[in-house]
Amino acid sequence: MLPFSLFVQPKPVNYKEVKWEEIKIDGFLLVKFIGGARKATTYKYVCTVKEKDKEDHEIAVVGLRALNEVCSDFYINESEEPFIQMDIVVAILSQPEIKFEKRKMICSFPGTIDVFEKP
């Protein structure tokens, strides 16, 4: 018989309101992108901030991918480094615990994050 703790879902992470001043370099954001075949699907990703352009209100981010099914652990997806506009930022996330496993940096949040990624 499996332990009860394996069936307990972590609580959702508390999100912070999005304000330009609150977005920090090396901070974490939840962002939404519209995509799919008909541009009708909303995808939500966790990203880390690499740069802020104060003039254009653009943010350079690196995308992260979920490492587990409950979406609490993420790893850096080196292939995704877009510039985004402020209007697609859903929330500012708290700083995760950073771990290193098998040469990957793992960002471990204290609960689940509401992401929707491409399979």
Rank of each mutant, 00 (worst) to 15 (best):
R38H: 10
Q95I: 05
P10E: 00
L6T: 09
C71H: 08
C71G: 01
Q95E: 09
I34R: 15
D73G: 14
R38T: 10
Y43H: 09
G35L: 04
Y45R: 06
P110M: 07
G27S: 15
L93E: 03
K19E: 10
K19T: 06
E80R: 09
K39P: 00
V70Q: 08
E117K: 03
I113S: 09
G36Y: 02
V70C: 07
K44N: 03
K16E: 14
Y45V: 01
V46K: 07
K32V: 03
G36M: 04
A37S: 10
Y75K: 03
F74G: 10
V62K: 15
M1K: 03
I106S: 04
V49C: 01
K104C: 01
P110D: 10
A91M: 00
M1P: 01
I113H: 08
K102E: 14
K39Q: 12
E80H: 06
F74E: 06
S94G: 11
K44F: 00
L93D: 02
F7M: 05
E81G: 15
K16V: 06
V13I: 05
P119I: 08
S79R: 14
K44L: 02
F4D: 10
A66S: 14
I34G: 11
I76L: 14
K32C: 08
D26Q: 15
V13T: 00
F116S: 11
I84N: 05
Y43V: 06
E51Q: 07
Q95T: 11
S108T: 12
E78P: 14
I88P: 05
K32R: 13
A66N: 11
K54G: 13
L2E: 11
P119F: 09
Q9I: 05
T48L: 03
K99S: 13
M86L: 09
M1F: 01
E58S: 13
V89T: 04
E17L: 09
V62F: 13
V115K: 08
K32A: 11
E22N: 15
K19N: 10
N77I: 02
A60P: 06
Y75T: 04
K39F: 07
T41I: 13
F28I: 02
